[in-house]
Amino acid sequence: MKIAILLLPALLLAGCGTIDTVFREDSVASEKLKERKSYCGGVPRIYSGVTYDFCSLHAPVPENGRTSTGPASTYGMLIDIALSSVFDTLLLPYTIYQQQTDGSLIITQ
């Protein structure tokens, strides 16, 4: 039981937009949004996790229906947006510096 409690935060953070945009390479976030055929052309580094999640949320539904959609998926995304907003706020000094030095994440189409 203790292991499950310790693994739950790790599993929640694995799909977190902030983790994908701040702590991983730029190509990871770019590829994921390109696979989802997101309408976003770029993601600013400031509050990048929240922006990334909104881009994922507003991506078109795939024709093959292989990904989960519906209320459960939407609620999971809303939880991720809430968590990302907290982490993005905590990381704000770093992401402001990163925006100034590197610019926005560009999603190549």
Rank of each mutant, 00 (worst) to 15 (best):
2 K>P: 03
3 I>Q: 06
4 A>D: 09
4 A>L: 07
5 I>Q: 06
5 I>C: 01
5 I>L: 06
8 L>T: 04
9 P>F: 00
10 A>D: 03
10 A>I: 02
11 L>K: 11
11 L>F: 10
12 L>G: 02
13 L>G: 07
14 A>F: 03
16 C>Q: 05
16 C>R: 02
17 G>I: 04
17 G>M: 06
18 T>V: 06
18 T>K: 02
18 T>A: 00
19 I>H: 05
19 I>Q: 02
20 D>R: 01
20 D>K: 08
20 D>C: 05
20 D>H: 05
21 T>A: 00
21 T>F: 01
21 T>R: 01
23 F>I: 13
23 F>Y: 12
25 E>I: 08
25 E>Y: 00
26 D>H: 12
26 D>R: 14
26 D>N: 11
28 V>Q: 04
29 A>D: 04
30 S>P: 07
30 S>C: 12
31 E>I: 13
32 K>T: 10
32 K>L: 13
32 K>M: 06
33 L>E: 08
33 L>S: 04
33 L>I: 08
34 K>M: 13
34 K>W: 03
34 K>Q: 07
35 E>K: 13
37 K>C: 12
38 S>W: 02
38 S>I: 02
39 Y>C: 13
40 C>D: 15
41 G>W: 09
42 G>H: 08
42 G>C: 12
43 V>F: 03
43 V>M: 03
43 V>I: 15
44 P>R: 15
45 R>M: 11
46 I>S: 03
46 I>L: 09
46 I>G: 05
48 S>P: 03
49 G>C: 03
51 T>R: 01
52 Y>H: 08
52 Y>M: 04
54 F>C: 07
54 F>W: 07
55 C>L: 06
56 S>W: 00
57 L>H: 00
57 L>C: 10
58 H>W: 13
59 A>I: 02
60 P>W: 09
60 P>K: 12
60 P>E: 11
60 P>H: 14
61 V>P: 12
62 P>E: 08
65 G>V: 08
65 G>Y: 09
66 R>E: 07
66 R>M: 00
66 R>K: 11
67 T>N: 13
68 S>F: 09
68 S>E: 10
69 T>K: 15
69 T>V: 15
69 T>R: 14
70 G>V: 04
70 G>E: 11
70 G>M: 09
71 P>V: 09
71 P>F: 10
72 A>E: 10
72 A>L: 06
75 Y>N: 12
77 M>R: 10
78 L>F: 02
79 I>M: 10
79 I>N: 03
80 D>Y: 01
80 D>S: 08
80 D>E: 07
82 A>P: 04
84 S>Q: 02
85 S>G: 11
85 S>W: 06
87 F>M: 01
88 D>E: 08
90 L>E: 10
90 L>A: 09
90 L>Y: 04
90 L>R: 06
90 L>W: 08
90 L>D: 10
91 L>G: 05
91 L>M: 10
91 L>P: 03
92 L>K: 10
94 Y>H: 11
94 Y>N: 04
95 T>D: 01
95 T>C: 09
96 I>Y: 00
98 Q>W: 12
99 Q>E: 14
100 Q>A: 15
100 Q>S: 14
100 Q>F: 15
101 T>C: 11
102 D>M: 13
102 D>H: 13
103 G>W: 12
103 G>N: 14
105 L>R: 04
106 I>A: 15
106 I>H: 13
108 T>K: 15
109 Q>C: 12
